[in-house]
C-alpha cells in the first residue's frame, strides 16, 4: 500500500463498547479535524448526540416533492385520460372526482415511498465510496472510529496517540 501525497488515508481505531465516545470525538475535534472527516461505525444506531455529520438535504423534502408529483400523475391517469378519450359509461361523469381522488392518493403514496427509498439508497451507497472500509468485527459488538487525513498531515501521530489512549483494540491506516 503505497501512500500518495494527494490521496487521503483513513486512520481507523476499533474500540470496546465501553469507550467514552463523546470525549474521544471532542479530543479529535480539538486537534482541528473537521466533522466531515470523522465517522463513527457501530452495529446498531447510536443515539443522535453521537452523530457527527450534519444533515445536508433532509430526506423528507424528497418525499414531499415526490408526493406532489404523484398526485399529478394520479390526476393525469384518472382525470386526464378520461377527458382525452371520453367514453360514456352508465350515468357516471366522464371525469369523476371521487375516482380521481382515490387514484391520486395511491399514486402519491407510491411515488413518495419509492423516491424516499431511492434517495436513501443513493445516500448509503455514496457514503460507501467516501468512507471507511467495512470491518466485520463491528458486528460482533464493537465500535469503530475513522478519521480521514492526508498522508502528510502533521496531526497523524497525535491522533494515533489519542486513539490508543482511549483504549483502541486495533489501529489501522489505509
Amino acid at each position: 500500500m503505497e501512500e500518495r501525497e494527494d490521496k487521503p488515508i483513513l486512520l481507523y481505531g476499533l474500540f470496546d463498547a465501553q469507550v467514552k465516545l463523546t470525549s474521544l470525538i471532542d479530543q479529535v475535534r480539538r486537534e482541528g479535524v473537521h466533522d466531515d472527516a470523522i465517522e463513527v461505525i457501530s452495529p446498531v444506531p447510536l443515539s443522535d448526540m453521537m452523530v457527527v455529520k450534519p444533515v445536508t438535504i433532509p430526506l423528507y423534502a424528497f418525499t414531499i416533492i415526490a408526493g406532489l408529483f404523484g398526485i399529478g400523475v394520479g390526476i393525469f391517469f384518472a382525470g386526464g385520460t378520461a377527458a382525452l378519450y371520453p367514453i360514456r359509461t352508465g350515468g357516471k361523469a366522464i371525469v369523476a372526482p371521487p375516482v380521481v381522488g382515490i387514484i391520486s392518493y395511491e399514486t402519491m403514496m407510491l411515488l413518495a415511498i419509492i423516491t424516499t427509498f431511492v434517495a436513501m439508497v443513493v445516500k448509503i451507497v455514496f457514503l460507501y465510496r467516501s468512507g471507511a472500509q467495512h470491518d466485520p468485527a463491528i458486528d460482533e459488538g464493537a465500535i469503530g472510529i475513522s478519521v480521514r487525513l492526508f498522508p502528510h498531515d502533521v496531526r497523524r501521530s497525535v491522533l494515533r496517540d489519542i486513539l490508543r489512549q482511549a483504549g483502541a483494540k486495533e489501529i489501522h491506516e489505509r
Binding site: 444506531p45 452523530v51 448509503i124 457514503l127 465510496r129
Partner: peptide, 14 residues
C-alpha cells in the same frame, strides 16, 4: 449496498 454501519448511514436508514 456497501453497508458499513457508519452513523450517517444509520441516520439515512432510520
Amino acid at each position: 449496498l456497501g453497508w458499513r454501519g457508519s452513523q450517517t448511514q444509520w441516520r439515512a436508514l432510520k
